[in-house]
Design a protein around this nucleic acid. Structure first.
Lengths: 187, 187
DNA sequence: GTTAAATCTAAGCAGACGCTTAGTTATTAA
DNA sequence: TTAATAACTAAGCGTCTGCTTAGATTTAAC
């Protein structure tokens, strides 16, 4: 029989994901992935088929890691307050020290052209639609809420969250806190 | 003496800008610019120095074109209502038929890495800071407004606008209208 | 008409891209 | 210990990148 893989796939994908996150999809080269993942190009292609495959696995891992936050949202019965906490947790999750990297998914949605990478685009849309559904669920917990308004409010919250992914790269942390405060003022 | 340029610089930049807008900065190649601008690579480099130069001129032109919208904002005394109109006008400006291209500046901020293109990044920051100042100006028109809150509200509005640049690529037009409506509800 | 200068076209540079192939090394079950 | 097999390294494939160079063409002042 043959020898076993000398590396742990989850570990090398974690490195890949962090690189994509910092650097974007297109401008991350396979040579860079090689160095960051610590394995040879051949091994990359053997394990993940191609660059797109590495990215899809990165999204999966990102999803798993962000689950720690979404889980508290999923299990909370705090309605709007729970969503607000999610916003703050997300900011914490998306930072590396003082640097905010935004949301990996949002970054990539904004970068990728639908027709050049339809598989990636589909994965990204699935991801964000899941979060929107969590917002809807939490909004429904508040009985006083107009049912017809809930969908619109979920869109509004998604818009604010997408905005934060960019704002966090430009604004100071204090400003971000202010933005979140106002976003939830009238909900 | 020598012959004159066979092309109008503003016209070819208009074509370049539209291509950057549709396609992003990095993934727009000089060969693509050649075809879209309708002039040879040599002429591109002779007139604009390099790809970065073409983009900087594109931003300038974008700025000029969006001035038509910001001017009404600048001259209006409608306070918050004026800003709301700006949001709607921006959506109209950023569409090409049924396709929303987002804001050229926001798209690029999200794509570019600060240390790889500092000149471009500086130009982009200048642009968005100008818009924020317009928001502050309009918010101040409303006397009942808490002065300390104005800066935070301007950040909040910028966040919503940045969000719209992405949302418009993902959500339906009806949803966008709903988002804008709620964004201004409590202001 | 001549000359000078700036335009134009088209070919090509070095380097980076995603991905593959050839050949060596290590590991496992018989 | 052997033989099979998969992971490894390293070199290289064709194509594209931003940018330059060489040479022909056009224009305008003298």
């Amino acid at each position: 029989m043959a020898r076993k893989k000398q590396y742990n796939e989850t570990e090398v994908i974690d490195n890949a994901m962090r690189l994509f996150w910092r650097n974007g999809y297109e401008s991350t080269s396979v040579r860079m992935l090689e160095k960051e993942m610590g394995i040879n190009q051949f091994s990359i292609y053997a394990s993940f088929k191609n660059k797109e495959g590495v990215f899809l696995e990165s999204i999966k891992l990102y999803n798993t890691q962000i689950k720690a936050i979404t889980n508290t949202l999923e299990k909370s019965n705090n309605g709007v307050e729970g969503i607000k906490e999610y916003f703050l947790d997300f900011l914490d999750f998306s930072r590396e020290g003082a640097i905010f990297k935004g949301c990996l998914v949002t970054n990539t949605v904004n970068e990728i052209k639908e027709d050049s990478s339809p598989i990636i685009m589909a994965a990204l849309k699935r991801f964000s639609s899941n979060i929107r559904e969590l917002f809807v669920r939490n909004l429904k917990q508040d009985d006083s809420r107009d049912v017809k308004e809930i969908e619109v409010q979920a869109d509004y919250l998604m818009n604010a969250l997408l905005g934060l992914s960019i704002s966090s790269k430009v604004f100071k942390e204090e400003q971000l806190k202010g933005i979140i405060k106002i976003t939830f003022l009238h909900l």
